[in-house]
């Protein structure tokens, strides 16, 4: 057992364990924890695959960003009904069966493909006669190929296995050294345009997410019923309450249609069916802070 195998065993097992536990756990926060475990172990796998930069990115973006955001979202949405959100047994069984069969399928596929031969085909562009060799003979050749070529690779800064930061950066700004089929190093086209697109995309997503999740008024707590999904129902109730309260006072009942209209327009504008005008005098505790 080499060091690599040992580390792979550790990381792969924790990755799989985390993933399976995510699927099995019902508590959403525990799911987040297991997701964390899985993602962090996957970052370890990335290290093993000589992708240091990506591993760091995985830790920073996935773990430090995405998972935190998820947990954050869990906390923000935790105020709903406390009814259990667990699936029915049948669903679980079907899903488990499907997942198992999918794993079997994928593993079977992985095992049945001669990757070395495919790699040779991809490298040389033709089906080589050596492809018929047994698999284990080609094993060393497979493991030695590295994203940045070899230790003496002329790729920028590739002094050590896993030092892909420079290569990635160069590829991002448009210089991508690559080996052609004659085994010569040529300068391929980089990823400058996708890089720019992804940057703009990120910005747009940020703005869009901020827009989508911008603060809106929440429903009064008295309205938190399962069927309170239609906004039209809500302002009808509002106006009905107004009318009933105004019937005692003729002057108020005179003025109530105006306020009714006002509240309707407010509701239509705000879109959530909660109007400060109508509900302030009735339900002072409506603005529940999240």
């Amino acid at each position: 057992m080499t060091v690599l195998q040992f580390l792979f065993a550790v990381f792969a097992s924790t990755t799989c364990l985390g993933a399976v536990m995510v699927a099995l756990t019902q508590n959403i926060v525990r799911m987040a924890f297991w997701l964390m475990v899985s993602v962090a172990s996957a970052a370890g796998l990335f290290f093993l695959l000589h992708a240091d930069f990506l591993a760091a990115a995985q830790l920073l973006v996935y773990l430090g960003g995405t998972v935190v955001i998820l947990v954050f979202g869990v906390m923000l949405t935790a105020g709903g009904r406390t009814r259990s959100l667990s699936p029915t047994g049948g669903e679980t069984i079907v899903a488990a069966a499907l997942a198992l069969s999918l794993i079997m399928l994928l593993l079977f596929t992985v095992g049945s493909v001669d990757w070395e031969r495919l790699n040779t085909i991809a490298k040389t562009g033709q089906v080589s006669p050596t492809a018929a060799q047994p698999k284990n003979e080609a094993e060393p050749q497979l493991t030695e190929s590295s994203p940045t070529g070899d230790e003496n690779s002329p790729v920028l800064g590739a002094g050590r296995k896993g030092d892909t930061g420079h290569a990635l950066g160069s590829a991002m700004i448009g210089f991508r050294p690559q080996w052609n089929r004659e085994n010569q190093l040529v300068l391929g086209t980089g990823y400058l345009l996708p890089f720019e697109i992804i940057s703009v995309h990120l910005l747009v997503v940020l703005i869009g997410a901020a827009y989508l999740a911008r603060a809106k008024r929440q429903l009064p707590s008295s309205r938190r019923s399962p069927d309170a999904t239609s906004t039209s129902l809500l302002w009808d109730q509002d106006s009905a309450q107004l009318d009933s309260s105004g019937s005692a006072n003729p002057a108020l009942s005179q003025s109530s249609p105006v306020r009714d209209d006002l509240s309707r327009s407010q509701n239509l504008v705000s879109g959530t069916g909660f109007s400060m005008f109508t509900s302030d005098p009735q339900s002072p505790n409506s603005g529940e802070v999240s």
Partner: peptide, 15 residues
Amino acid sequence: IIESSVFLALAIISL
């Protein structure tokens, strides 16, 4: 000792 150790340190600090 890895090349992107600054990056990695920042990532871990955020964890």
